Amino acid sequence: MNILYIDANIYLGFYNSNRPEYKKLLGSVIELADKIFFTQQLAFEIDRNKLNIFRLSIDNYIKQVSLTATILPEHLDEDGSPKFTDWNKARKELEKQISDSNKELSPILNDVLNDIAISQDKVSKELSAIYATAQSPSGKDLENARLRKEIGNPPGKRADPLGDQLSWEQLLTIVPDISQLWIVSTDRDYFTEHKKTLYLNPVLYQDLVRQNPRIIIKTFNILSEALRDFNNEVKIASIPSKEELDLISETEAQDLTGLTGSTASFMYSGSFAPSKPNICPKCAMANSFLEGAYLRSQYGGLTLQYICKNCGFHADTGDSFD
């Protein structure tokens, strides 16, 4: 059988308000519910993080559209030419319009946040078809997952709660029956990337072929590309057109490199993150940095970076995504 294994960070992308094109893939995911291996642990991870993902993406959006109060020195206007005065007046009107618009948005967002909190939003309702297939772990799965975590084998990080390890151990129990497996994740525990090609972590590869030497494994960090490839084997009636897939794929790829600012998939929520700078070294604005995100780095791989909302400067902490 052909199986898709989609990591929690991919599902959480549907709660990122900055990725409207991405949501066109939701119908295809729901259509493939019986071809997706989904666990109780994945459901827990999505539910734990979906509210915060939406809130962070909305906060970033509001910060991006908000205007800093600006007044030009009207006393420098030339005699009879109120250019600065007129500009200040127009600017104040624009600032007020945006401020009023954001105020009108606030109760709408509160309603959406409440819906997400009780899983009554559109995405959560549609994902209920996937949740209905969630597999519960056995005692043996838990034991193996704890051992995997203790010895430091992927997936999952030793400092994090037991999570990815458990879903992976559950997946291994059905691998003997899988002919082709598509793994979709943005988590670097699963793969190494070189020149846009993803190579599955050797430990994970050995896990799979030990259970099924004939299994065909395909690894993706872009959902649209995974679905495009899966569609070559199993036709997906609701898959977007080639043109739409190309656009969505481009957006997803930009998200991974941090070019679009839609970095909710990499938002860092840990308590040990290097602190953001107080003052931007490029534009000298205080308290101008957005929440940290793991982006492509000058040091190689992904590192935690803070982006100045005023000038776009990236403060690279060098803290790697591992």
Rank of each mutant, 00 (worst) to 15 (best):
I151T: 11
I183F: 04
N212M: 05
I178E: 00
L171K: 01
G156I: 15
P155D: 08
A145R: 06
F191G: 12
P161W: 04
N221I: 00
A145P: 11
W168A: 06
F220I: 09
T219D: 11
D246V: 07
K157G: 08
T197Q: 13
T173W: 04
S185N: 01
S128F: 12
L142R: 14
L245H: 13
K140M: 11
K242G: 06
G156N: 11
E225K: 00
D160A: 09
I178Q: 07
S241M: 08
R210Y: 10
V203Y: 14
Q206F: 12
L172W: 05
S185T: 14
L208F: 00
S119V: 00
L147P: 03
P155M: 08
D164H: 15
D121I: 10
N153M: 10
Y131K: 06
L200G: 02
V184Y: 08
S185E: 00
E126P: 03
L171R: 01
S119I: 00
A134Q: 02
D229G: 01
V184C: 11
D229N: 12
S179A: 05
V209D: 11
P137Y: 04
L171A: 05
L162I: 12
L147A: 12
I239Y: 06
I174R: 01
L227D: 00
Q120G: 14
I183Q: 02
I236K: 09
Q165E: 15
